[in-house]
């Protein structure tokens, strides 16, 4: 049986004490799988994803990611865990003071790779996301689709074990969307990364098998 990389038991998530966003949900995600999380707007999809990278701690129940219990995780251990994650945020979260190249390089710098490796890997990734020639641009000088592709390159730079993407094609042009789905599939197929994607609609022409979790009234259901 494949290893489980994310395991939630009776998970409750909330921002305010008595207002649960995710209620008593139990589910798991196996290593190497491609998972979609769907749900209406405001149903708690981003909230759930946030809990996976330790920004929101479980109110009750338990949550393990990569075998590490996140309930009371220490900052140093969380930093350690995050080095194995590649996160794509709904609002991109690019560092505006840094150019495209340095933004993509961030996880590599954190991992402590040599300058040569950082340069080579960054160059390769920017080619993948079709942003060659824009290395020196700053985020404000890019379109939404381009920014999202930079965020994509950054999330993949260090070959993460788990990729967490929050509506990565939210309101992007077709071209950017195709590039992003292609990269997520590639990371899953070729590198064996576990991919968890929050989306409001599952693309029809996906080439990899996937699972589907759905949030309804705060409860996470395993549809397939």
């Amino acid at each position: 049986m494949a290893k489980k990389v994310i395991v939630a038991k009776d998970l409750v998530l909330s921002y305010k004490k008595n207002v649960p966003i995710i209620k008593n949900s139990t589910f798991s995600i196996t290593s190497g799988s491609f998972v979609f999380i769907t749900g209406a707007s405001g149903s708690g999809k981003s909230t759930l994803l946030r809990s996976f990278y330790g920004e929101l701690r479980p109110r009750s129940g338990s949550l393990h990611v990569g075998g590490i219990l996140l309930n009371d995780i220490k900052p140093s251990k969380l930093s350690f865990l995050r080095k194995y994650l590649g996160i794509i945020f709904q609002d991109y979260k690019l560092i505006k003071e840094w150019n495209v190249k340095k933004n993509v390089m961030l996880p590599l710098l954190i991992a402590g790779y040599s300058k040569d490796v950082c340069e080579a890997q960054t160059k390769r990734l920017l080619k993948h996301v079709r942003l060659e020639g824009k290395e020196e641009y700053y985020p404000v000088e890019l379109s939404g689709g381009e920014q999202q592709r930079v965020a994509m390159a950054r999330a993949l730079a260090h070959n993460p074990v788990i990729i967490l993407a929050d509506e990565p094609t939210g309101n992007l042009d077709d071209y950017s969307s195709r590039v992003i789905w292609g990269l997520l599939e590639g990371a899953n197929e070729q590198l064996g990364s576990t991919v968890v994607v929050v989306t409001h609609s599952i693309p029809k022409d996906l080439n990899v098998p996937y699972r589907h979790l759905h949030i309804e009234n705060g409860v996470v259901y395993e549809i397939s």
């Binding site: 995050r82 979260k93 840094w98 961030l106 954190i110």
Partner: peptide, 12 residues
Amino acid sequence: ERMYIMALFGAP
């Protein structure tokens, strides 16, 4: 913001 984003990627 920058420090926060760096933290999200596990920067010490």
